[in-house]
């Protein structure tokens, strides 16, 4: 009887450990650091990427298709000071957008709700740089509405980027007010 209980316990714990490790690896295995951009991470989910079942699993488990193979998918959860991006604060996204056929930027919360803005919706500065606000209320200029929720994830998807071999310089996120 005692032996049977040990077998049962080993199987229950094994099942739990296997399932929990799968959830954790699906969440984290497709994420790669972006050289020179400490706050950004790149989520790779192309067919040739290592650990493809994990990286594609991240998207499809949420009911979303992985981004096209020709796109690069960058994410960040913190501003330039290293604090979590929060829905009630105002941020300004600056820098020069990557040379690409198209790009979109989106904010999502834990519930997976997204507000997005595309390349054509953003008015660039005279020097071609980006000045995009993340704010929960209207502000002058281009803006992504902060969805409700305490912490947010900023996603930057670049479709068919040029110069894929050179290191990328991704936009900055500075807190304006809170």
């Amino acid at each position: 009887m005692r032996g049977f209980l040990h077998i049962l316990l080993a199987m229950i714990v094994g099942t739990a450990v296997g399932g929990i490790s799968a959830i954790g690896m699906i969440e984290n295995f497709g994420l790669m650091a972006v050289a020179g951009n400490p706050h950004w991470q790149e989520r790779r989910a192309g067919p040739g990427e290592p650990f493809s079942p994990y990286s594609t699993g991240y998207f499809i488990e949420q009911g979303r298709v992985p981004p096209p193979a020709s796109a690069r998918f960058f994410v960040r959860t913190t501003d330039d000071d290293g604090s979590l991006i929060r829905g009630e604060c105002v941020y300004v996204v600056g820098g020069v957008p990557l040379e690409a056929r198209w790009w979109t930027m989106a904010l999502g919360n834990a519930q997976g709700r997204f507000n997005a803005i595309g390349a054509a919706d953003v008015i660039l500065e005279g020097d071609g740089s980006l000045r995009l606000f993340i704010a929960p209320y209207p502000v002058p200029g281009s803006r992504i509405l902060s969805p409700p929720g305490s912490t947010l994830t900023l996603t930057y998807v670049v479709h068919e980027p040029q110069d894929v071999d050179i290191p990328v310089v991704l936009p900055t996120v500075k807190k304006v007010s809170c």
Binding site: F59, G63, R64, V65, P66, P67, F73, T104, M105, A106, F114, A116, I117, G118, D121, T155, V157
Partner: peptide, 8 residues
């Protein structure tokens, strides 16, 4: 927007 990540 539910299906395609970061679509506008």
């Amino acid at each position: 927007q539910q299906l395609v990540p970061a679509s506008g």
